[in-house]
Every structure is written in C-alpha cells, then in structure tokens.
Design a protein around this nucleic acid. Sequence first.
DNA 1: AAAGAAAACGAGCGCTCGCTCGATTTTTTT
DNA 2: AAAAAAATCGAGCGAGCGCTCGTTTTCTTT
Lengths: 231, 231
Amino acid sequence: MNFAGHRQWTAAFSTETLCARILERHRDTVRVQKPHVAVANLARIIEATLKLSNKQGFHATSLRDLAQASGLSMGGLYSYFDNKTTLLSMILGEVTTTVNEVLGAAADEIRKDPPDHLKWLIETHIRLTEAMQPWFVFAYMEAKSFPAHERRMAVDSEAATEEIFAAVLRQGVANGTFAIADIELTASLIKPLLQDWYVKRAKYRKRGTTIEQYIEAVSAFVEAAVQPRRH
Amino acid sequence: MNFAGHRQWTAAFSTETLCARILERHRDTVRVQKPHVAVANLARIIEATLKLSNKQGFHATSLRDLAQASGLSMGGLYSYFDNKTTLLSMILGEVTTTVNEVLGAAADEIRKDPPDHLKWLIETHIRLTEAMQPWFVFAYMEAKSFPAHERRMAVDSEAATEEIFAAVLRQGVANGTFAIADIELTASLIKPLLQDWYVKRAKYRKRGTTIEQYIEAVSAFVEAAVQPRRH
DNA sequence: AAAGAAAACGAGCGCTCGCTCGATTTTTTT
DNA sequence: AAAAAAATCGAGCGAGCGCTCGTTTTCTTT
C-alpha cells in the first residue's frame, strides 16, 4: 500500500477496500460467491453495524435494526456471517490488522532518527484513526464484551502498538536523544493521548479543534516529556 | 468530609457510605422505609451491578443475574428502583457528585501555587478513582448507552472536571509559572492520562505498576509539558 | 424463452428479557 | 399472642431477541 498522498490514503481506507480485505479473510463464512456482490453488501452491512453500534452499543443493536438499516433481509444477513459474534470479529480483525500494518511501515530514513520516528508514529496513528474513526470507536468501546478469543486479540493488538512506541523510546534513550525514567510506563501514557482523538471525537468537533492542532499538541506534549531537561 | 488520612478516605468511599448518599438522593424511588435495611440491600445490589456490568456490560446483565448475585428476588429488587435505568442513574449520579466535590476541595494554601495545585489535582484524581474504581469504570464504559438525560450529566461532569484543570493552567500562565500554547487543549489531554489508570487497570496490575509510580509518571509527564522551556 | 443456479426473502421457532402482582414471610405494634 | 404493617418472594406476562428454513425472486447459461 502507498500512504504518501491524501487521495491514496482515503481510497485505501474506504469501507469498500476494507470490506474486500474482510471478505478475503472470511471466504469460508461468507456464502455469497460473486465478489463484487459480496463486497458491496458487506460494506452496507458493516457501515450499518458501525453506525448503529456506535450510537447504542453492539449488544443493543438487533439484527432486525441491522437488516432495515442495511437494506437486506434477516435471512440475507446470514449469507454474510454465521452468527452475530462473527460480524463483530470481522470488524475487530480488520482494525487490528490495519493498525499494525500501517504503524510498522515507516520508511527507513525515518526509523534512523528516534525523534522523527516518534513524531511520525503519533501523526500516522492519529490520521489513521481519523480515516477509520467508526471502526476504532467500535473496537475500543465493544472490547469488553468480546468473547474470550476476540478479547485476547484486542489486548494483544494494544500491547503490540505500545511495544512499537516503547522500541522507539528505547532507541532514543540509547543514542541520547531522549531521557526517560520508565520507558514502558511512558509508552503506556502515549496511547491514551492518541485514543482520545477518536474516543471523544464529538467533544473536539464541537470545540473546533482540527486534526493538525491535535497532532501538534500531542507531539509537543510527548516531546517535552521525553526530552532531556536542562537545569 | 475529611480526606486527610487513609482510614477516613477508605471509609468515605466504602460502598455503604456511597449507598447512604444514593438513598438520600433517591428517597422517593426506594420503597423500603428503614434506612439501615435499605442501605444494606442497596449496597449488595450495587456491588453486584458493578461486578457483573464491568465484566459483561450493563445491558448484558439481566435482572435475574442481579437477583442471584445480590441475594434478593426479582420482585425484591424493584423495591429499590422502579426500572433498570434508574439503577444506572444511581451509580452515575454518585460518581459525578463525588468527583466534583472531591476535586473542588483543595485547601487554600494549595490553591495559591498553580504547580502545587496541579500536582494535587492529579494525585487526588488518581487516588479517588482507585478508591472507587468499579464505579468509575462503570460510568466510563456505560456512558454511551445512557439515556439522553444521564448522558448529558456525564458529558457535563467531564467538562466540569476539565474546566477545573484549565483554571489552574490559566492561573499558572498568568503568574508565569507555566508556558502553554493552548490551555483548553492541554487540559483535555491531561484527562485521558488520569483515566487510563482505571480504564486499563488490569494491564497495570499485571505489569506490577504501583499507584505511586503512576502518579509520579503522570505528574512528571504533565509538568514537563507545562513548564517554560529553556533554550 | 426455458432451465438451473445463486441470492434474497421474511414469517416463525425457542428462548430470555424487563417487569408485575398476589401470596408469603418477617417485623413491629398492641 | 393476636393483629397490622413492612418487606420479600417468584411464577407468569407480553415483547423482542438471535437464528432457521421453505419459498420467491433475480441472474446466468443455453
């Protein structure tokens, strides 16, 4: 994938593109054969699921609501998943796969410089969660009600993201550009700063905060915390 | 209330004490007359509600589960609330009332010095959410499924907490002890750092992070971000 | 245009939900 | 110890849930 320009970025995270990837990963449970039909309907189903779940919760969203909102029938839905939990897994799996793929794709020249790499990670994470906002809100808010296996996936994914940050901090401490008392704990504290952008999106929208302002604020906040102090 | 010592602090936030306050606020909906009976049973009901809801979500917790876990019957429960939503409101109301009460109770000598006040707010918030952890997790996780009125309460309460932090930052900028580009945005970013302690409590427990370490890490993180830089 | 395959349909099943209410037990009053 | 009041009980109600399956519609092939 190419994340260089805004046009490619937007296309890469459109519901259609994401649902095409979901279809690949769930070929065995989706009973509709023609890919372009399956992708189109999956997109309608998942768009409806995200919309309704983020308003009232996944558990409170009935398959009748979902059928009406997606334009399919009750029975029609079951050609795309074998039970309600599978639908949840489809969305969660796509979020965890994508976030690890994207955050791990920093160019080599960026990796060389820990402060650059840290700033890139912050910006990329915030822009990714903006492009896939309903997906991330869903994964975050529904995590507690996941079945055991899905829950583990979510926890592991969170740990993996945190470790990406920890590795950069460690590298920066090693070459002297950062001074940090507790690397793991600092990495843990960066995550909620990134998550706040999508978890409390409504608050920032009402307040008129732009994504650029938010990226700048978080970057400055984190940079101040990791920079060596001069006494 | 006196929050000076650990013993008083613990007693002030015991389930019984909190339920006594809930009873006061809901005298009209609780149909059991003798206060000591009402408080004791309310405590059992709410303890069961927090335990089950934080494991599987409030919506997924049935009143039959709740009856079994609290030791009351289905009908018995309805002597303490008139419907399931009222039970949710009782818990939410107690959380919002308490957090504003406690964070607004800084001593005058602490208020005088913005850095002291900021540090006090961070420590007090984290210790309060530790003492009432299941209550805060409940309020945070169930917020999205609140009915309109309760939801507004939660949003307003969050805004009020944020404004307490913003006021201190503003005071510090005015007297030159802080240097901050965007006060409101910085105040917004402090909140998720505080919330992470109770939202992801399991992670920190597994990792062996103590509350003192966490308070210290967040304080250091925030202090670095608000301190004037020396070039 | 007829036949076969693929996709979509939606009434209906068993079950659990929030909630009620007459019966029963416990406590208080006399 | 009898009567009155307070508190608790739990079977039962209608509604709505996830899910199924015999039928109908749409598309593809010939």
